[in-house]
Amino acid sequence: MRLVFVHAHPDDESLWTGLAIAHHAARGDDVHVLTCTLGEEGEVIPAELRHLQLPADQPRAVDAADPLADLRRDELHSAVKELGVSTVTVLADGAYRDSGMAGTPSAAHPRAFAGADLAVSSDAVAAYLRAAEPDIVVTYDAHGGYGHPDHIRTHQATAAAVASLPDRPAFYTVVTPRSWAVEDRAWLAIHATRPEVVVPAPDETFLPSVVDDAAVTHTVVDGAALERQVAALQRHRTQVSVYDGYYTLSNNVATRLAAREAFQRIDPGSGSRWLSRRSSCGIRGWSRERAADERA
């Protein structure tokens, strides 16, 4: 199979779908990554590299340099090499810029991806997909996983692009089954004991990408692929700190590395969950479900 994973920033491919990418690459599938920006607004973790981080809460001049962009591009290329990706591409040759978090002045930059004309950005994604001819396209859910404006726009642009194709690939979004989310918090409470690390409380609200287990249509569970995902995350050292069984970002909030990822197949036009002609729900592998559809 040929799979395309569409993400907003360098590191997202490894954080959100690194296990699935490594799994499919290892079994011989043709895997490609498309990133919509270079993560110019990222918060830098290593002290010796913080001079590359732009000042927070300040407007960005149109002609200002983006000192972090080249380093994050290098990190991206190193990470996808660990995952076994065939190609990695920056959308529209870098025409779009990281918008930053919701409400920040960087969102007003004329190249900010979240503020770009959706018809134009979705056309750019569609042009890439027409050339790639994937069987499967994967991106965030409609909430962008956790509400980042670039993640939301990536979902919107990718869904519109897939819907516009005459021969549509299967379209999947990243989700987390609620039972996994509960298990992961319990695990972190025991194992993520470093004093600087923050572990979400059991009753803390889950991310909007956490869904009822019955809403999940596909999973990838692969302990062997976890090693490659961890290696890829370690390449994103400006953004990610990797520990034994979990990682943190600049906010020090722990996320478990549990060797499993979940997805929901949806209709790119309506956004509704796709229902197989053979089964209304269920958790199955992508290749098996595709084969079943082709026999139907």
Score class of each variant (00 low, 15 high):
residue 267 D to E: 14
residue 65 A to W: 00
residue 227 E to H: 12
residue 111 R to E: 11
residue 76 L to P: 00
residue 3 L to Q: 11
residue 214 A to Y: 01
residue 278 R to W: 09
residue 169 P to W: 10
residue 198 V to T: 13
residue 120 V to S: 12
residue 51 H to C: 04
residue 282 G to R: 08
residue 48 E to W: 04
residue 285 G to R: 14
residue 176 T to F: 13
residue 274 W to C: 04
residue 221 V to T: 14
residue 18 G to M: 08
residue 23 H to V: 02
residue 92 A to I: 00
residue 39 G to T: 01
residue 135 D to E: 15
residue 66 D to W: 13
residue 196 E to K: 05
residue 96 Y to V: 01
residue 142 A to K: 07
residue 254 A to G: 07
residue 49 L to W: 12
residue 192 A to C: 07
residue 44 V to S: 05
residue 260 R to M: 13
residue 77 H to Q: 12
residue 274 W to A: 12
residue 292 A to M: 13
residue 36 C to L: 15
residue 122 S to A: 14
residue 170 A to S: 13
residue 112 A to F: 07
residue 1 M to V: 08
residue 157 A to F: 02
residue 58 Q to R: 15
residue 270 S to L: 10
residue 260 R to E: 14
residue 130 R to N: 15
residue 260 R to K: 11
residue 295 R to V: 10
residue 69 A to W: 02
residue 237 R to H: 13
residue 277 R to Y: 05
residue 140 Y to V: 01
residue 29 D to C: 10
residue 229 Q to L: 12
residue 39 G to E: 09
residue 141 D to G: 15
residue 287 S to E: 15
residue 249 L to M: 13
residue 109 H to E: 12
residue 63 D to N: 11
residue 195 P to S: 09
residue 267 D to I: 04
residue 32 H to W: 07
residue 225 A to F: 10
residue 238 T to G: 04
residue 29 D to M: 10
residue 142 A to C: 05
residue 164 S to I: 03
residue 22 A to W: 04
residue 217 T to A: 05
residue 85 V to S: 06
residue 189 A to M: 11
residue 192 A to V: 03
residue 167 D to M: 09
residue 273 R to G: 08
residue 10 P to L: 10
residue 288 R to K: 07
residue 27 R to C: 11
residue 263 F to T: 03
residue 36 C to N: 14
residue 288 R to F: 09
residue 281 C to Y: 10
residue 235 R to D: 12
residue 94 G to L: 09
residue 156 Q to H: 03
residue 226 L to F: 04
residue 186 A to T: 01
residue 43 E to P: 00
residue 120 V to F: 01
residue 72 R to M: 07
residue 258 A to P: 00
residue 220 V to W: 06
residue 104 T to V: 04
residue 184 D to F: 11
residue 233 L to W: 03
residue 213 D to T: 03
residue 267 D to T: 05
residue 288 R to H: 10
residue 273 R to T: 14
residue 164 S to F: 05
residue 239 Q to D: 09
residue 64 A to K: 03
residue 59 P to S: 11
residue 145 G to I: 03
residue 283 I to A: 12
residue 103 G to E: 09
residue 170 A to E: 12
residue 30 D to P: 01
residue 187 W to G: 01
residue 235 R to G: 08
residue 166 P to Q: 11
residue 184 D to M: 12
residue 148 H to G: 10
residue 213 D to Y: 07
residue 188 L to G: 04
residue 156 Q to C: 02
residue 68 L to K: 03
residue 65 A to G: 13
residue 87 T to C: 01
residue 275 L to D: 02
residue 63 D to E: 14
residue 212 D to Y: 03
residue 279 S to P: 00
residue 243 Y to I: 00
residue 290 R to K: 09
residue 38 L to H: 02
residue 294 E to R: 15
residue 89 T to L: 01
residue 293 D to R: 15
residue 89 T to G: 00
